[in-house]
């Protein structure tokens, strides 16, 4: 059993739900990213989604686009992100999911990536623009290294697609709360409840809801019907707004505490 499965099992036993924050690796720099992962884990993050910056983030809103640009300006490379995870693993067992567009992984080499990711202690990979139709080869490589491929399902996914994707999915399923790009929103739509229920009919995997979740209230709301909540843009916006680097860890730490509180 890998760290993701263990985590959900442990949460289940205590009837708790998962808080899954997203940050872009290299924003504001890799040293900060390393410290942020540890801080978030300490303050109540159950799983970390670690974003690989890509020059053309077509599924992302302005907040994560800007984070990506900052990370690329700093020269953030995939190999350095993987090395960072190996350092994190010396002190923390928080499950880590690599969150990326396909091209940076493809150019790194899919086999090489899977081998290295397993070595450094990454638990799963989520590829925004890799549809299950195109995922076959990468999926079998990840399986060989016992890494989970996390799939997204959206309100636009038909029941046929849900059936197809849930057969391939491992770790947990990422339910997208609405159509659109990543970003903060005030109220969550009802379609996501329906989506989670539709997915439940096909799969026993944990379901985490993401896109637009930005407050403690929304996390609580989502956790009434799902197994976890993913918070991205809110955290990335907070990192962007923090002008004093010495305050960064404390600020993000208390944000995670707030989001995780009952």
């Amino acid at each position: 059993m890998n760290r993701i499965a263990k985590k959900f099992q442990a949460l289940n036993k205590t009837e708790r739900k998962a808080l899954i924050p997203y940050i872009t690796a290299g924003d504001p720099d890799l040293a900060a990213t390393e410290a942020l992962i540890l801080k978030m884990a300490e303050c109540g993050a159950d799983i970390i989604e670690l974003g690989v910056p890509f020059s053309d983030p077509m599924a992302d809103g302005p907040v994560i686009q800007r984070a990506t640009e900052r990370a690329l300006t700093k020269g953030t490379k995939l190999i350095d992100i993987l090395d960072l995870v190996s350092r994190v693993r010396k002190v923390s067992q928080v499950p880590i999911v690599l969150f990326s567009y396909f091209n940076p992984l493809l150019q790194f080499g899919l086999e090489k990536l899977a081998k290295k990711a397993a070595e450094v202690g990454i638990d799963g990979v989520l590829v925004t623009d890799l549809s299950p139709e195109e995922a076959g080869n990468f999926l079998s490589i990840l399986c060989r290294y016992n890494l989970d491929m996390i799939f997204l399902l959206a309100p636009t996914s038909s029941d046929e697609r849900i059936a197809k994707v849930t057969k391939l999915a491992r770790g947990f399923i990422y339910a997208v709360s609405r159509t659109g790009i990543t970003g903060i929103q005030q109220t969550l739509s009802d379609t996501v409840v329906e989506l989670v229920l539709r997915i439940r009919k096909h799969s026993n995997l944990p379901i985490a809801v993401g896109f637009g979740i930005s407050s403690r209230e929304q996390v609580k709301e989502v956790c009434c019907y799902a197994d976890g909540a993913i918070v991205g843009s809110r955290i990335v916006a907070e990192i962007e707004a923090c002008k004093d680097q010495t305050q960064l860890l404390e600020k993000i730490g208390s944000l995670i505490q707030e989001l995780a509180s009952d």
Partner: peptide, 12 residues
């Protein structure tokens, strides 16, 4: 070729 897009776009 193929279809390398986020899940939201697959059904459309």
């Amino acid at each position: 070729g193929g279809c390398y897009v986020p899940e939201i776009l697959m059904h459309p």
